[in-house]
Design a protein around this nucleic acid. Sequence first.
DNA 1: CTTGACCCTGTAGCGACTGCAAGGTCTACC
DNA 2: GGTAGACCTTGCAGTCGCTACAGGGTCAAG
Lengths: 134, 134
Amino acid sequence: MMQIGELARAAETTAETIRYYETIGLLPSPPRTAGNYRAYTAAHLQRLVFTRRARSLGFGIEQVRALLDLADQRERSCAAVDAIARDHLAEVDRKLADLAALRAELDALIGQCGHGIVAECRILEALAPAAPRP
Amino acid sequence: MMQIGELARAAETTAETIRYYETIGLLPSPPRTAGNYRAYTAAHLQRLVFTRRARSLGFGIEQVRALLDLADQRERSCAAVDAIARDHLAEVDRKLADLAALRAELDALIGQCGHGIVAECRILEALAPAAPRP
DNA sequence: CTTGACCCTGTAGCGACTGCAAGGTCTACC
DNA sequence: GGTAGACCTTGCAGTCGCTACAGGGTCAAG
């Protein structure tokens, strides 16, 4: 039996996060000691490590919830697991593309700076395309 | 003089966002009509377009605030503008690297799925490295 | 018996909006 | 003059995934 701080260290997270996961029903409420402390087992740790790892891979809370549920149904096909992971990969690819496009635009913007005064700054001009040029 | 909906359409945003920018002091409070409607000019539109464009390039609200302040000091050197833009580019590069690393990890995870049952799913195993294998 | 490390609940805050409720105003038409 | 409908007003709650308190309780060591 561990208490919450120990569990947090073991899973490289914080007690606040663990309590948060409990309130949103992502992790089960553990039994309590006589002094009302949460008492965790290795099974709780495994579930928490799973959760933190999925979160660190960018899965959302609801996706993690679905993955945890699936992991409990050991006889089911893992097609649903695969689908969640592929959905998430597609989402990550979308974000990567967006960010790369943004980077290119930002880079072009910076390349235009002539290091003069603000009145002639091409970065500011590029940001405000409707600005009148005297 | 435009009212808020017209300004929103012209800047491709919403009235709610414009009012939000006003409450946080990013955009100035415009004069009001007799009926208490906000009355905007072309200058307001220009400032709003600037703001939305900077936001769409990923600059944070505080960075936009700084850029707007700088744009008003027309005689200053634009080195500060350049610095803000370069800082942001560095931040975007960091995010791109993080996301690319995450993508690679996720891709490796998915490649392991043998399409069997959950009990043997390598995706779930990879997520919970401490899981005992029977 | 006190110190200090740990734990408890409950609530507010972050960023950048978004959505909604309950009401006021303006224009057009009958 | 009445009314429908499009617009506007304020204020507040919700989003996501935590994080940071405040104000208390518990427990082992010295």
